[in-house]
Design a protein around this nucleic acid. Structure first.
Lengths: 237, 237
DNA sequence: CGAGTTGTTGAAATGACTCAATGTTAGTGG
DNA sequence: CCACTAACATTGAGTCATTTCAACAACTCG
Protein backbone atom coordinates (compact mmCIF):
# COMPACT_ATOMS: atom_id res chain seq x y z
CA UNK A 1 0.00 0.00 0.00
CA UNK A 2 2.77 2.36 0.86
CA UNK A 3 4.36 1.44 -2.44
CA UNK A 4 1.21 2.63 -4.10
CA UNK A 5 1.64 6.13 -2.84
CA UNK A 6 5.14 6.21 -4.24
CA UNK A 7 3.73 5.85 -7.73
CA UNK A 8 2.87 9.46 -7.56
CA UNK A 9 5.52 12.14 -7.63
CA UNK A 10 3.66 13.76 -4.78
CA UNK A 11 5.15 11.26 -2.36
CA UNK A 12 8.68 11.05 -3.68
CA UNK A 13 11.41 11.26 -1.05
CA UNK A 14 8.99 11.66 1.80
CA UNK A 15 10.03 10.43 5.27
CA UNK A 16 8.29 7.26 6.42
CA UNK A 17 6.47 9.24 9.06
CA UNK A 18 4.86 11.34 6.35
CA UNK A 19 3.79 8.33 4.30
CA UNK A 20 2.34 6.68 7.38
CA UNK A 21 0.51 9.84 8.25
CA UNK A 22 -0.92 10.11 4.78
CA UNK A 23 -2.03 6.50 4.73
CA UNK A 24 -3.58 6.83 8.16
CA UNK A 25 -5.64 9.84 7.17
CA UNK A 26 -6.80 8.53 3.80
CA UNK A 27 -10.38 7.52 3.14
CA UNK A 28 -10.94 4.85 0.45
CA UNK A 29 -13.87 4.73 -1.94
CA UNK A 30 -15.00 2.80 -5.04
CA UNK A 31 -16.78 3.71 -8.24
CA UNK A 32 -18.47 1.95 -11.13
CA UNK A 33 -18.03 2.95 -14.77
CA UNK A 34 -19.98 6.11 -15.38
CA UNK A 35 -19.89 7.21 -11.75
CA UNK A 36 -18.61 10.69 -11.09
CA UNK A 37 -15.59 10.90 -8.81
CA UNK A 38 -15.90 14.66 -8.92
CA UNK A 39 -18.72 16.85 -10.17
CA UNK A 40 -17.92 20.10 -11.94
CA UNK A 41 -19.14 23.07 -9.94
CA UNK A 42 -19.10 21.36 -6.55
CA UNK A 43 -16.96 22.97 -3.86
CA UNK A 44 -13.42 21.63 -4.13
CA UNK A 45 -13.17 19.88 -0.80
CA UNK A 46 -10.39 17.37 -1.14
CA UNK A 47 -7.65 15.60 -3.02
CA UNK A 48 -7.62 11.98 -4.14
CA UNK A 49 -5.38 9.40 -5.70
CA UNK A 50 -6.65 6.72 -8.04
CA UNK A 51 -5.60 3.32 -6.73
CA UNK A 52 -7.39 1.38 -9.42
CA UNK A 53 -9.03 1.90 -12.79
CA UNK A 54 -9.14 4.69 -15.33
CA UNK A 55 -11.15 7.90 -15.27
CA UNK A 56 -11.68 10.80 -17.62
CA UNK A 57 -11.61 14.49 -16.84
CA UNK A 58 -14.45 16.27 -18.63
CA UNK A 59 -15.13 19.95 -18.73
CA UNK A 60 -18.38 21.52 -19.82
CA UNK A 61 -18.14 25.04 -21.21
CA UNK A 62 -20.71 27.71 -20.34
CA UNK A 63 -22.24 27.28 -23.79
CA UNK A 64 -22.66 23.55 -23.38
CA UNK A 65 -19.61 22.29 -25.21
CA UNK A 66 -18.14 19.15 -23.75
CA UNK A 67 -14.35 18.78 -23.69
CA UNK A 68 -12.18 15.89 -22.57
CA UNK A 69 -9.18 17.25 -20.74
CA UNK A 70 -7.25 14.02 -20.12
CA UNK A 71 -7.42 10.54 -18.73
CA UNK A 72 -5.94 9.49 -15.40
CA UNK A 73 -4.96 6.03 -14.14
CA UNK A 74 -3.72 4.23 -11.11
CA UNK A 75 -1.34 6.33 -9.02
CA UNK A 76 -2.43 9.69 -10.41
CA UNK A 77 -3.89 12.34 -8.16
CA UNK A 78 -6.79 14.69 -8.78
CA UNK A 79 -8.32 17.58 -6.90
CA UNK A 80 -5.17 19.52 -6.04
CA UNK A 81 -7.36 22.55 -6.44
CA UNK A 82 -8.79 21.76 -3.03
CA UNK A 83 -5.57 23.21 -1.62
CA UNK A 84 -6.80 26.64 -2.62
CA UNK A 85 -9.53 28.04 -0.37
CA UNK A 86 -12.99 28.79 -1.70
CA UNK A 87 -12.58 27.01 -5.00
CA UNK A 88 -14.98 24.94 -7.04
CA UNK A 89 -14.07 21.93 -9.15
CA UNK A 90 -13.57 23.22 -12.69
CA UNK A 91 -14.36 19.84 -14.26
CA UNK A 92 -16.02 16.50 -13.67
CA UNK A 93 -14.18 13.22 -13.37
CA UNK A 94 -16.01 10.11 -14.51
CA UNK A 95 -14.94 6.50 -14.03
CA UNK A 96 -14.26 4.79 -17.37
CA UNK A 97 -13.53 1.41 -15.75
CA UNK A 98 -14.26 0.38 -12.14
CA UNK A 99 -12.18 2.64 -9.94
CA UNK A 100 -10.90 2.93 -6.40
CA UNK A 101 -9.45 6.04 -4.82
CA UNK A 102 -7.96 7.37 -1.61
CA UNK A 103 -9.30 10.67 -0.37
CA UNK A 104 -7.99 13.45 1.87
CA UNK A 105 -10.00 16.48 2.89
CA UNK A 106 -8.68 19.97 2.24
CA UNK A 107 -8.00 20.67 5.92
CA UNK A 108 -6.15 17.41 6.43
CA UNK A 109 -4.06 18.32 3.44
CA UNK A 110 -3.12 21.81 4.47
CA UNK A 111 -2.03 20.40 7.83
CA UNK A 112 0.03 17.72 6.15
CA UNK A 113 1.60 20.26 3.81
CA UNK A 114 2.67 22.52 6.63
CA UNK A 115 3.98 19.57 8.63
CA UNK A 116 5.93 17.96 5.80
CA UNK A 117 7.47 20.72 3.66
CA UNK A 118 8.72 18.19 1.19
CA UNK A 119 5.13 17.37 0.33
CA UNK A 120 4.53 20.96 -0.71
CA UNK A 121 7.63 21.01 -2.85
CA UNK A 122 6.58 17.77 -4.53
CA UNK A 123 3.05 18.99 -5.15
CA UNK A 124 4.42 22.20 -6.59
CA UNK A 125 6.64 20.25 -8.95
CA UNK A 126 3.72 18.14 -10.05
CA UNK A 127 1.69 21.24 -10.79
CA UNK A 128 4.50 23.00 -12.58
CA UNK A 129 4.97 20.03 -14.86
CA UNK A 130 1.25 19.67 -15.39
CA UNK A 131 0.92 23.30 -16.28
CA UNK A 132 3.68 22.89 -18.79
CA UNK A 133 1.81 20.02 -20.38
CA UNK A 134 -1.37 22.05 -20.49
CA UNK A 135 0.57 24.86 -22.06
CA UNK A 136 2.02 22.53 -24.64
CA UNK A 137 -1.40 21.25 -25.61
CA UNK A 138 -2.61 24.81 -25.80
CA UNK A 139 0.15 25.58 -28.19
CA UNK A 140 -0.59 22.56 -30.32
CA UNK A 141 -4.22 23.57 -30.54
CA UNK A 142 -3.10 27.02 -31.52
CA UNK A 143 -0.80 26.00 -34.30
CA UNK A 144 -1.58 22.49 -35.51
CA UNK A 145 -4.24 21.18 -37.84
CA UNK A 146 -6.81 18.63 -36.82
CA UNK A 147 -5.12 15.61 -38.35
CA UNK A 148 -1.88 16.33 -36.58
CA UNK A 149 -3.65 16.91 -33.30
CA UNK A 150 -5.36 13.54 -33.57
CA UNK A 151 -2.00 11.92 -34.23
CA UNK A 152 -0.51 13.65 -31.21
CA UNK A 153 -3.45 12.55 -29.10
CA UNK A 154 -3.06 8.92 -30.13
CA UNK A 155 0.64 9.00 -29.34
CA UNK A 156 -0.04 10.48 -25.96
CA UNK A 157 -2.69 7.88 -25.21
CA UNK A 158 -0.38 5.13 -26.44
CA UNK A 159 2.20 6.39 -23.99
CA UNK A 160 -0.22 6.24 -21.14
CA UNK A 161 -2.31 3.19 -22.02
CA UNK A 162 -0.33 1.37 -24.69
CA UNK A 163 0.33 -2.36 -24.54
CA UNK A 164 2.80 -3.56 -27.14
CA UNK A 165 2.17 -7.01 -28.60
CA UNK A 166 4.48 -9.51 -30.34
CA UNK A 167 4.18 -7.84 -33.74
CA UNK A 168 5.16 -4.49 -32.34
CA UNK A 169 1.66 -3.07 -32.61
CA UNK A 170 0.46 -0.97 -29.74
CA UNK A 171 -3.00 -1.48 -28.30
CA UNK A 172 -4.35 1.64 -26.65
CA UNK A 173 -6.11 -0.16 -23.84
CA UNK A 174 -8.86 2.30 -23.22
CA UNK A 175 -12.43 2.16 -24.46
CA UNK A 176 -12.93 5.33 -26.43
CA UNK A 177 -15.52 6.43 -28.96
CA UNK A 178 -14.88 8.73 -31.89
CA UNK A 179 -16.66 11.38 -29.96
CA UNK A 180 -14.32 10.97 -27.01
CA UNK A 181 -11.38 11.43 -29.35
CA UNK A 182 -13.06 14.46 -30.86
CA UNK A 183 -13.66 16.07 -27.48
CA UNK A 184 -10.07 15.27 -26.61
CA UNK A 185 -8.57 16.85 -29.71
CA UNK A 186 -10.98 19.71 -30.15
CA UNK A 187 -12.75 18.64 -33.29
CA UNK A 188 -15.93 16.83 -34.33
CA UNK A 189 -16.67 13.14 -34.28
CA UNK A 190 -17.01 13.34 -38.06
CA UNK A 191 -13.50 14.53 -38.51
CA UNK A 192 -12.01 11.93 -36.19
CA UNK A 193 -14.00 9.25 -37.96
CA UNK A 194 -12.70 10.33 -41.35
CA UNK A 195 -9.13 10.58 -40.17
CA UNK A 196 -9.13 7.22 -38.43
CA UNK A 197 -10.71 5.62 -41.48
CA UNK A 198 -8.05 7.07 -43.72
CA UNK A 199 -5.32 5.73 -41.47
CA UNK A 200 -7.03 2.35 -41.38
CA UNK A 201 -7.05 2.17 -45.17
CA UNK A 202 -3.38 3.08 -45.08
CA UNK A 203 -2.81 0.17 -42.69
CA UNK A 204 -1.47 2.43 -39.98
CA UNK A 205 -4.09 1.61 -37.38
CA UNK A 206 -6.90 -0.80 -36.60
CA UNK A 207 -9.87 1.18 -35.47
CA UNK A 208 -12.39 0.10 -32.90
CA UNK A 209 -13.30 1.06 -29.40
CA UNK A 210 -9.73 0.28 -28.51
CA UNK A 211 -7.45 1.51 -31.25
CA UNK A 212 -4.39 -0.49 -32.30
CA UNK A 213 -1.43 1.40 -33.69
CA UNK A 214 0.26 -0.81 -36.28
CA UNK A 215 2.72 1.71 -37.55
CA UNK A 216 3.74 4.07 -34.81
CA UNK A 217 6.44 5.59 -36.98
CA UNK A 218 3.86 6.66 -39.53
CA UNK A 219 1.80 8.34 -36.87
CA UNK A 220 4.87 10.10 -35.61
CA UNK A 221 5.46 11.35 -39.10
CA UNK A 222 1.94 12.67 -39.34
CA UNK A 223 2.22 14.26 -35.93
CA UNK A 224 5.44 16.02 -36.71
CA UNK A 225 5.61 16.59 -40.42
CA UNK A 226 3.24 16.32 -43.33
CA UNK A 227 -0.14 14.68 -43.53
CA UNK A 228 -0.97 11.72 -45.68
CA UNK A 229 -2.56 13.95 -48.31
CA UNK A 230 0.57 13.83 -50.39
CA UNK A 231 1.04 10.14 -49.68
CA UNK A 232 -0.14 6.93 -51.31
CA UNK A 233 -3.77 7.31 -50.21
CA UNK A 234 -5.59 10.01 -52.13
CA UNK A 235 -7.89 11.92 -49.86
CA UNK A 236 -11.62 11.32 -50.13
CA UNK A 237 -11.43 8.19 -52.27
CA UNK B 1 10.53 46.68 -0.49
CA UNK B 2 9.00 44.08 1.73
CA UNK B 3 5.62 45.38 0.67
CA UNK B 4 6.63 44.62 -2.86
CA UNK B 5 6.97 40.95 -2.17
CA UNK B 6 3.50 40.88 -0.70
CA UNK B 7 2.06 41.80 -4.07
CA UNK B 8 2.56 38.24 -5.06
CA UNK B 9 0.44 35.47 -3.61
CA UNK B 10 3.67 33.56 -3.17
CA UNK B 11 4.47 35.61 -0.08
CA UNK B 12 1.06 35.80 1.52
CA UNK B 13 0.93 35.07 5.23
CA UNK B 14 4.65 34.43 5.47
CA UNK B 15 6.41 35.10 8.79
CA UNK B 16 8.65 38.16 8.81
CA UNK B 17 11.67 35.92 9.07
CA UNK B 18 10.79 34.33 5.78
CA UNK B 19 10.30 37.65 4.02
CA UNK B 20 13.61 38.92 5.38
CA UNK B 21 15.31 35.76 4.28
CA UNK B 22 13.88 36.06 0.79
CA UNK B 23 14.87 39.70 0.50
CA UNK B 24 18.36 38.96 1.74
CA UNK B 25 18.93 36.23 -0.81
CA UNK B 26 17.47 38.07 -3.80
CA UNK B 27 19.60 39.35 -6.65
CA UNK B 28 18.28 42.39 -8.56
CA UNK B 29 18.68 43.00 -12.27
CA UNK B 30 17.43 45.39 -14.96
CA UNK B 31 16.38 45.05 -18.58
CA UNK B 32 15.67 47.28 -21.54
CA UNK B 33 12.73 46.80 -23.91
CA UNK B 34 13.46 43.86 -26.14
CA UNK B 35 15.89 42.25 -23.70
CA UNK B 36 15.21 38.64 -22.82
CA UNK B 37 14.68 37.97 -19.14
CA UNK B 38 14.57 34.29 -19.95
CA UNK B 39 15.56 32.44 -23.09
CA UNK B 40 13.51 29.44 -24.21
CA UNK B 41 15.60 26.29 -24.11
CA UNK B 42 18.07 27.49 -21.48
CA UNK B 43 18.38 25.41 -18.30
CA UNK B 44 15.77 26.59 -15.80
CA UNK B 45 18.01 27.85 -13.07
CA UNK B 46 15.97 30.24 -11.01
CA UNK B 47 12.83 32.11 -10.15
CA UNK B 48 12.24 35.84 -10.40
CA UNK B 49 9.72 38.49 -9.57
CA UNK B 50 9.16 41.53 -11.73
CA UNK B 51 9.55 44.64 -9.61
CA UNK B 52 9.07 47.04 -12.48
CA UNK B 53 7.83 47.08 -16.04
CA UNK B 54 5.95 44.71 -18.27
CA UNK B 55 7.20 41.64 -20.09
CA UNK B 56 5.71 39.14 -22.50
CA UNK B 57 5.97 35.37 -22.41
CA UNK B 58 6.60 34.01 -25.91
CA UNK B 59 6.77 30.43 -26.96
CA UNK B 60 8.22 29.21 -30.21
CA UNK B 61 6.84 25.91 -31.52
CA UNK B 62 9.10 23.28 -33.08
CA UNK B 63 7.80 24.29 -36.51
CA UNK B 64 8.62 27.93 -35.98
CA UNK B 65 5.24 29.31 -34.97
CA UNK B 66 5.43 32.11 -32.47
CA UNK B 67 2.80 32.25 -29.71
CA UNK B 68 2.24 34.84 -27.01
CA UNK B 69 1.33 33.09 -23.80
CA UNK B 70 0.62 36.08 -21.57
CA UNK B 71 1.95 39.33 -20.23
CA UNK B 72 3.30 39.83 -16.74
CA UNK B 73 3.72 42.99 -14.71
CA UNK B 74 5.08 44.27 -11.47
CA UNK B 75 4.73 41.77 -8.64
CA UNK B 76 4.31 38.71 -10.82
CA UNK B 77 6.75 35.85 -10.63
CA UNK B 78 8.22 33.77 -13.43
CA UNK B 79 10.44 30.73 -13.61
CA UNK B 80 8.70 28.54 -11.04
CA UNK B 81 9.77 25.72 -13.28
CA UNK B 82 13.25 26.10 -11.82
CA UNK B 83 11.87 24.29 -8.77
CA UNK B 84 11.83 21.10 -10.80
CA UNK B 85 15.25 19.54 -11.34
CA UNK B 86 16.71 19.18 -14.81
CA UNK B 87 14.22 21.38 -16.58
CA UNK B 88 14.59 23.83 -19.39
CA UNK B 89 12.65 27.05 -19.82
CA UNK B 90 9.72 26.26 -22.10
CA UNK B 91 9.39 29.85 -23.27
CA UNK B 92 11.18 33.15 -23.59
CA UNK B 93 10.32 36.26 -21.63
CA UNK B 94 11.00 39.60 -23.28
CA UNK B 95 10.83 43.03 -21.71
CA UNK B 96 8.13 45.19 -23.31
CA UNK B 97 8.98 48.24 -21.21
CA UNK B 98 12.09 48.78 -19.07
CA UNK B 99 12.01 46.10 -16.38
CA UNK B 100 13.57 45.26 -13.05
CA UNK B 101 13.45 41.89 -11.35
CA UNK B 102 14.55 40.03 -8.24
CA UNK B 103 16.16 36.67 -8.77
CA UNK B 104 16.64 33.55 -6.66
CA UNK B 105 18.59 30.51 -7.80
CA UNK B 106 16.98 27.09 -7.81
CA UNK B 107 19.04 25.86 -4.86
CA UNK B 108 18.28 28.90 -2.75
CA UNK B 109 14.66 28.32 -3.49
CA UNK B 110 14.50 24.66 -2.60
CA UNK B 111 16.17 25.52 0.71
CA UNK B 112 13.68 28.30 1.36
CA UNK B 113 10.78 26.05 0.48
CA UNK B 114 11.86 23.35 2.89
CA UNK B 115 12.52 25.90 5.60
CA UNK B 116 9.24 27.79 5.21
CA UNK B 117 6.49 25.29 4.44
CA UNK B 118 4.01 28.07 3.95
CA UNK B 119 6.00 29.19 0.94
CA UNK B 120 5.49 25.81 -0.69
CA UNK B 121 1.78 25.90 -0.03
CA UNK B 122 1.53 29.38 -1.48
CA UNK B 123 3.50 28.47 -4.56
CA UNK B 124 1.34 25.42 -5.04
CA UNK B 125 -1.77 27.55 -4.86
CA UNK B 126 -0.34 29.96 -7.38
CA UNK B 127 0.38 27.12 -9.76
CA UNK B 128 -2.99 25.47 -9.28
CA UNK B 129 -4.75 28.70 -10.10
CA UNK B 130 -2.45 29.37 -13.04
CA UNK B 131 -3.07 25.92 -14.41
CA UNK B 132 -6.77 26.50 -14.16
CA UNK B 133 -6.41 29.68 -16.17
CA UNK B 134 -4.35 27.90 -18.79
CA UNK B 135 -6.98 25.20 -18.91
CA UNK B 136 -9.69 27.80 -19.34
CA UNK B 137 -7.89 29.42 -22.23
CA UNK B 138 -7.37 26.00 -23.74
CA UNK B 139 -11.07 25.42 -23.58
CA UNK B 140 -11.87 28.76 -25.13
CA UNK B 141 -9.52 28.04 -27.97
CA UNK B 142 -11.20 24.70 -28.40
CA UNK B 143 -14.74 25.97 -28.55
CA UNK B 144 -14.85 29.66 -29.41
CA UNK B 145 -14.53 31.45 -32.70
CA UNK B 146 -11.82 33.97 -33.45
CA UNK B 147 -13.89 37.09 -32.87
CA UNK B 148 -14.99 35.95 -29.46
CA UNK B 149 -11.45 34.98 -28.55
CA UNK B 150 -10.18 38.42 -29.48
CA UNK B 151 -12.89 39.97 -27.33
CA UNK B 152 -11.94 37.75 -24.42
CA UNK B 153 -8.30 38.66 -24.88
CA UNK B 154 -9.03 42.38 -24.84
CA UNK B 155 -11.10 42.02 -21.69
CA UNK B 156 -8.32 40.10 -20.02
CA UNK B 157 -5.75 42.67 -21.03
CA UNK B 158 -8.04 45.47 -19.88
CA UNK B 159 -8.24 43.74 -16.53
CA UNK B 160 -4.50 43.59 -16.26
CA UNK B 161 -3.44 46.83 -17.91
CA UNK B 162 -6.58 48.92 -18.12
CA UNK B 163 -6.65 52.57 -17.03
CA UNK B 164 -10.14 54.02 -16.93
CA UNK B 165 -10.47 57.67 -17.93
CA UNK B 166 -13.11 60.30 -17.19
CA UNK B 167 -15.44 59.17 -19.97
CA UNK B 168 -15.40 55.61 -18.74
CA UNK B 169 -13.23 54.39 -21.59
CA UNK B 170 -10.51 51.95 -20.74
CA UNK B 171 -7.03 52.39 -22.13
CA UNK B 172 -5.14 49.13 -22.37
CA UNK B 173 -1.79 50.58 -21.43
CA UNK B 174 0.43 48.18 -23.29
CA UNK B 175 2.06 48.66 -26.67
CA UNK B 176 0.79 45.84 -28.82
CA UNK B 177 0.77 45.24 -32.56
CA UNK B 178 -1.94 43.38 -34.46
CA UNK B 179 0.48 40.54 -34.72
CA UNK B 180 0.95 40.41 -30.96
CA UNK B 181 -2.80 40.18 -30.55
CA UNK B 182 -2.91 37.47 -33.19
CA UNK B 183 -0.22 35.42 -31.49
CA UNK B 184 -2.07 35.92 -28.24
CA UNK B 185 -5.42 34.74 -29.53
CA UNK B 186 -4.27 32.09 -31.95
CA UNK B 187 -5.18 33.67 -35.24
CA UNK B 188 -3.55 35.75 -37.97
CA UNK B 189 -2.73 39.43 -37.96
CA UNK B 190 -5.16 39.81 -40.85
CA UNK B 191 -8.05 38.55 -38.82
CA UNK B 192 -7.24 40.71 -35.80
CA UNK B 193 -6.89 43.70 -38.07
CA UNK B 194 -10.28 43.10 -39.64
CA UNK B 195 -11.98 42.50 -36.32
CA UNK B 196 -10.49 45.57 -34.66
CA UNK B 197 -11.41 47.67 -37.69
CA UNK B 198 -14.97 46.43 -37.52
CA UNK B 199 -15.20 47.32 -33.86
CA UNK B 200 -13.68 50.70 -34.55
CA UNK B 201 -16.35 51.44 -37.17
CA UNK B 202 -18.94 50.37 -34.62
CA UNK B 203 -17.42 52.86 -32.19
CA UNK B 204 -16.62 50.17 -29.65
CA UNK B 205 -12.89 50.73 -29.61
CA UNK B 206 -10.18 53.11 -30.72
CA UNK B 207 -7.43 51.15 -32.34
CA UNK B 208 -3.77 51.95 -32.19
CA UNK B 209 -0.72 50.54 -30.55
CA UNK B 210 -2.55 51.00 -27.29
CA UNK B 211 -6.18 50.07 -27.73
CA UNK B 212 -8.93 52.05 -26.02
CA UNK B 213 -12.16 50.27 -25.14
CA UNK B 214 -14.99 52.76 -25.44
CA UNK B 215 -17.83 50.36 -24.91
CA UNK B 216 -16.77 47.57 -22.61
CA UNK B 217 -20.31 46.25 -22.40
CA UNK B 218 -20.38 45.68 -26.14
CA UNK B 219 -17.17 43.71 -25.98
CA UNK B 220 -18.57 41.67 -23.15
CA UNK B 221 -21.56 40.94 -25.32
CA UNK B 222 -19.35 39.79 -28.15
CA UNK B 223 -17.25 37.71 -25.80
CA UNK B 224 -20.19 35.96 -24.28
CA UNK B 225 -23.00 35.91 -26.75
CA UNK B 226 -23.36 36.67 -30.41
CA UNK B 227 -20.99 38.46 -32.71
CA UNK B 228 -21.70 41.72 -34.44
CA UNK B 229 -22.58 39.87 -37.65
CA UNK B 230 -26.24 40.18 -36.89
CA UNK B 231 -25.82 43.72 -35.57
CA UNK B 232 -25.83 47.17 -37.13
CA UNK B 233 -22.53 46.72 -38.97
CA UNK B 234 -22.83 44.33 -41.91
CA UNK B 235 -19.78 42.18 -42.17
CA UNK B 236 -17.25 42.87 -44.87
CA UNK B 237 -18.77 46.13 -46.02
C1' DC C 1 12.53 62.86 -45.78
C1' DG C 2 12.79 58.14 -46.81
C1' DA C 3 13.09 53.33 -45.40
C1' DG C 4 11.33 49.93 -42.79
C1' DT C 5 7.82 48.42 -39.99
C1' DT C 6 2.99 48.05 -39.21
C1' DG C 7 -1.85 48.16 -40.69
C1' DT C 8 -5.70 47.60 -44.12
C1' DT C 9 -8.26 45.43 -47.58
C1' DG C 10 -9.85 42.36 -51.39
C1' DA C 11 -10.17 37.97 -53.72
C1' DA C 12 -9.40 33.24 -53.79
C1' DA C 13 -8.48 28.90 -51.59
C1' DT C 14 -9.43 25.63 -48.08
C1' DG C 15 -9.80 23.00 -43.91
C1' DA C 16 -13.09 21.82 -41.01
C1' DC C 17 -17.94 21.81 -39.61
C1' DT C 18 -22.88 20.84 -40.21
C1' DC C 19 -26.47 18.02 -41.32
C1' DA C 20 -28.71 14.11 -43.00
C1' DA C 21 -28.82 9.51 -44.46
C1' DT C 22 -27.18 5.00 -43.91
C1' DG C 23 -24.37 1.24 -42.16
C1' DT C 24 -22.32 -1.24 -38.30
C1' DT C 25 -21.46 -2.92 -33.80
C1' DA C 26 -22.29 -4.26 -29.11
C1' DG C 27 -25.07 -5.42 -25.58
C1' DT C 28 -29.86 -6.88 -23.82
C1' DG C 29 -33.47 -9.80 -22.96
C1' DG C 30 -36.38 -13.38 -24.67
C1' DC D 1 -28.11 -18.41 -28.84
C1' DC D 2 -30.53 -15.39 -31.63
C1' DA D 3 -33.18 -11.23 -32.51
C1' DC D 4 -33.73 -6.63 -31.37
C1' DT D 5 -32.43 -2.12 -30.05
C1' DA D 6 -29.68 1.63 -29.02
C1' DA D 7 -25.41 3.46 -29.40
C1' DC D 8 -21.76 4.30 -32.40
C1' DA D 9 -19.50 4.90 -36.98
C1' DT D 10 -19.25 6.10 -41.85
C1' DT D 11 -19.92 8.88 -45.76
C1' DG D 12 -21.30 12.61 -48.97
C1' DA D 13 -22.68 17.20 -50.10
C1' DG D 14 -22.98 21.78 -49.00
C1' DT D 15 -21.48 25.74 -46.29
C1' DC D 16 -18.77 28.82 -43.79
C1' DA D 17 -15.22 30.94 -41.03
C1' DT D 18 -10.69 31.68 -41.40
C1' DT D 19 -6.38 31.71 -43.75
C1' DT D 20 -3.42 32.93 -47.52
C1' DC D 21 -1.43 35.90 -50.54
C1' DA D 22 -0.77 40.16 -52.80
C1' DA D 23 -1.09 44.93 -53.16
C1' DC D 24 -1.17 49.12 -51.09
C1' DA D 25 -1.62 52.73 -47.35
C1' DA D 26 -0.18 54.73 -43.16
C1' DC D 27 2.67 55.32 -39.60
C1' DT D 28 7.25 56.14 -37.06
C1' DC D 29 11.80 56.62 -36.21
C1' DG D 30 16.44 57.52 -37.66
Amino acid sequence: MRALLCWNDLFVDLPDAALDHMLATAAPSDYQPGDLLIRQGDPADGLSILTQGTAKLCQLTPDGHQTLVRYITCGQEFGLIALVPEQVYPLSIAAVTPCSALYWSGDTLVQAFLRFPRLGLNALRVMVVRNQETQLRYQELLTERVERRVALALLRLADQFGRTDEQGSILVDLPMTREDLAEFTGTTLFSTSRILRKWQLAGIIEPGRRVVLNDVAAIHTIAEADSLESGPIPCGR
